[in-house]
Nucleic acid binder design. Structure first.
Ligand SMILES: NC(=O)c1ccc[n+]([C@@H]2O[C@H](COP(=O)([O-])OP(=O)(O)OC[C@H]3O[C@@H](n4cnc5c(N)ncnc54)[C@H](O)[C@@H]3O)[C@@H](O)[C@H]2O)c1
Ligand SMILES: NC(=O)c1ccc[n+]([C@@H]2O[C@H](COP(=O)([O-])OP(=O)(O)OC[C@H]3O[C@@H](n4cnc5c(N)ncnc54)[C@H](O)[C@@H]3O)[C@@H](O)[C@H]2O)c1
Lengths: 219, 219
DNA sequence: AGTACCTTGTGAAGGATTTCACAAGCACCC
DNA sequence: GGGTGCTTGTGAAATCCTTCACAAGGTACT
């Protein structure tokens, strides 16, 4: 018999590291489910996600109570709960700005779609790129951006333009109503209150590695 | 007259967020230098990096004392100091494993080189990709991986293989002596003690955005 | 029905990081 | 040479995040 139903819980403010870990748990659970497992303990989840079992339980406890004491978590149920928590019980249309090397790679990335995100538009200033097709989506001129955002109502934009163009591109998508942006350009952008900007910065990632290598005298 | 010289400081253990911010400061300073500015205050640096001036000063203070009270920091000197702190006073050879869409995009990414990282090898199992050239580097067969690592002595590997192949690829590069890895596959990997693995996970980034959008009722 | 065993959920403790706030240093001007 | 104004460097306080540790709840087996 079903319980009546997935407690939409209190939830105050959740730390970003927690949200990142939840995403990681979900990723692992999906694979674990495919392998045919029915339940999982916080300990197993922790090992897979590189944390501790207490951390896993604490992370989940912010949103409700999903496990059975003595048994662990029902894999399928936990997947459903995590999807709901993360806002993945609906699909998210996404636009990509910049159809260069990285933009094209992303547009053709299948994992995008399998995680609930649909690329509904991709834009470029370069006339020679406009009109080419990437994974079923035709590259459109950047002047179509605002109109398309109005009609396709994506909520997320991915910026794959050169650093010099990134702030301007951000301003345009924000002006058109976008409130969540993933930025691949290696520049830090300023956005108005209420707009979430996340950056994927290759140089920073490599530099963190370089730092770790030069300071491996830590124990 | 030169001071005698950039204090190689005490330095205990530095938190990762600090290192990330230092990388961000460096990125901004390089642009700021090109614009011809000679000095910068912690406040300006903070605005550019999305933090506070106290945070900037605290971050730097772990490594020494780089500013002049009343004036701020000399841009060129601070750039040099940050490069040294991050281990960027030498160039880093890097190998890329997997010459698919993302691996190819990275291999052709110029920003890689301008930040001190040289792609010295790129490897793929697919015979149809082997032999193609990407930005001056020829794709080689994955069986050449261990030998090349021995002769080219890269210290960093970037994994751009499918999720199923990622752990095996990690094990191979680690076995060949690599101790720092950047993983683009959406799987969390386990590495032996002493090996630093960082992950760039597109799905997680988008999910954090989706979470932010669904919970924008935070003030 | 009772016992043994296992794993969750969670206050409380502990640790880490960020923010505060201010003394000290430096440049510039009168 | 003393005063003014600005900005750094840094202990101390505050906040945030993780880990601990254990009661509570559940299963399985006898
Ligand atoms: N290639 C990589 O692996 C990689 C990795 C990390 C970060 N990046 C960053 O991603 C961004 C793009 O890199 P890339 O390698 O794809 O470069 P690219 O030159 O291949 O692509 C950039 C594309 O953006 C288009 N563009 C320029 N201004 C535009 C605008 N205002 N609106 C729409 N489109 C515009 C250009 O026409 C071009 O097609 C850069 O900021 C780069 O630093 C790239
Ligand atoms: N394309 C993207 O935008 C994107 C974005 C984020 C993450 N990723 C991840 O990056 C990885 C690669 O994605 P992609 O889109 O480039 O896929 P792809 O299929 O285009 O490329 C994968 C390449 O790896 C090669 N390969 C497979 N096993 C290998 C092995 N053991 N050794 C060496 N090479 C091997 C394949 O021959 C292929 O050329 C995947 O894990 C994907 O999830 C891709």
């Amino acid at each position: 018999m079903k319980d009546f139903t997935s407690t939409p819980p209190p939830v105050k403010h959740i730390a970003e590291p927690t949200v990142r870990r939840l995403s990681g748990y979900l990723r692992f659970l999906e694979a674990f489910d495919v392998e045919g497992h029915e339940t999982i303990s916080s300990g197993e989840l922790a090992r897979a996600g590189g944390t501790t079992s207490a951390q896993v339980r604490k992370d989940l406890s912010f949103f409700g109570s999903f496990g059975k004491r003595g048994l662990g978590y029902a894999v399928k149920d936990l997947i459903a709960s995590l999807r709901e928590i993360l806002g993945l019980d609906t699909r998210w249309p996404v636009v990509i700005v910049g159809a260069g090397k990285i933009g094209a790679a992303l547009a053709q990335y299948r994992g995008f779609g399998t995680h609930g995100f649909d690329v509904v538009g991709i834009y470029d200033t370069d006339p020679s790129r406009v009109g080419t097709r990437l994974n079923g989506v035709t590259v459109r001129a950047d002047r179509d951006l605002e109109g398309d955002i109005a009609t396709l109502t994506p909520r997320i934009a991915v910026l794959c333009v050169p650093g010099e163009a990134a702030q301007a591109a951000l301003d345009r998508v924000v002006g058109a109503g976008i409130r969540a942006v993933l930025n691949f350009a290696p520049t830090s952008l300023v956005a108005p209150e209420g707009v979430t900007v996340r950056a994927v910065n290759m140089a920073t990632e490599l530099e963190v590695l370089a730092y770790a290598l030069t300071n491996e005298s830590r124990d």
